[in-house]
Design a binder for these strands. Structure first.
Lengths: 157, 157
DNA sequence: GGACCATACATGACGTGTCACCTACCCTGC
DNA sequence: GCAGGGTAGGTGACACGTCATGTATGGTCC
């Protein structure tokens, strides 16, 4: 209620919005994950990695660039790429220019998986989100999310 | 990424909004988690559990009711309560009325932890989210999130 | 060219979440 | 009373994410 700095509790509208937001988030992520898993055997992070790889020159990219592109920690990329490599979705290559570096390259299996997953994934996002929003709302939400993201205090994960 | 004709891809506004949303989500959760971890040694899920427990009669609740309240799977509750029990944040009790049942009760340590965590957590939410939104925007977001949540197709996980 | 520090990436430990499955208990119908 | 099916909860395997740390290479200064 009180907007004073001493007692920063949330009012009813704020609490309602916050609960809906966090609940919706969890449900969206879980649903998208589950559907893509059933559809193409890919998780959400798998999909994100493969999208970046297919958009990259020759289907390969340096680990650090992949991390920057996804805004993931490098260690997370390392772990995830290792898991994906076990499933033959990607391969790791040394980097001739920099002995410390490594490339990640999409495999044929990986390419097949994302081509299989992509249409259903987009359809799901449209069905779950955009079909229920007007164009104005989409634009406004985009502006709001960007505003919140650009403020200080958020870890860049 | 194959673009077939019968597959309506996201337009620029939609893609921008979706990216901002997913990015913001990850950053918000990570930041809230990190700050509360540093502040009171609690994770986000820990906090959610303790909130429900403090709001419950005698600080205890049946596992299934806890799961329903959090909209978590029971197995998730089971795992998380087990971890919290190891840290003395909660205790598990048998249920005299139903031999299958079990109660989870907040401990003194748990009560101290959430009392320590709550003000900072709320301040963080306010700082990261509500300080950058007008009251109208809050109400509108609440309405939109609720609308999306109430549509079919979302897993209630 | 050797000391020194930064960078690129990997790894191990651990908390978290899901899925599949298990056990124990309750309840109803006979 | 007991057979059959549903319910409460727990468990094991595994994927995911973070943190702290390790290892090898690169670059710089003397």
């Amino acid at each position: 209620m009180a907007k004073t700095n001493d007692n920063p509790w949330l009012n009813d509208d704020e609490q309602h919005m916050w609960r809906q937001w966090m609940g919706l988030d969890a449900e969206l992520l879980a649903t998208l994950n589950r559907e893509m898993q059933a559809d193409a055997g890919l998780s959400n992070p798998d999909y994100q990695v493969l999208v970046v790889l297919t958009d990259s020159e020759e289907g390969r990219i340096r680990v650090s660039d992949l991390a920057a592109s996804l805004q993931w920690e490098r260690s997370r990329v390392s772990h995830h790429v290792a898991r994906m490599e076990k499933r033959d979705l990607v391969t790791r290559l040394g980097c001739p220019d920099d002995g410390r570096g490594a490339f990640v390259r999409i495999s044929e299996t990986g390419r097949a998986a994302i081509e299989r997953a992509a249409p259903g994934h987009v359809r799901a996002v449209r069905r779950l989100v955009f079909d229920a929003l007007t164009a104005d709302e989409v634009a406004q939400l985009g502006e709001i999310f960007q505003r919140l993201r650009s403020r200080a205090g958020l870890s860049t994960g």
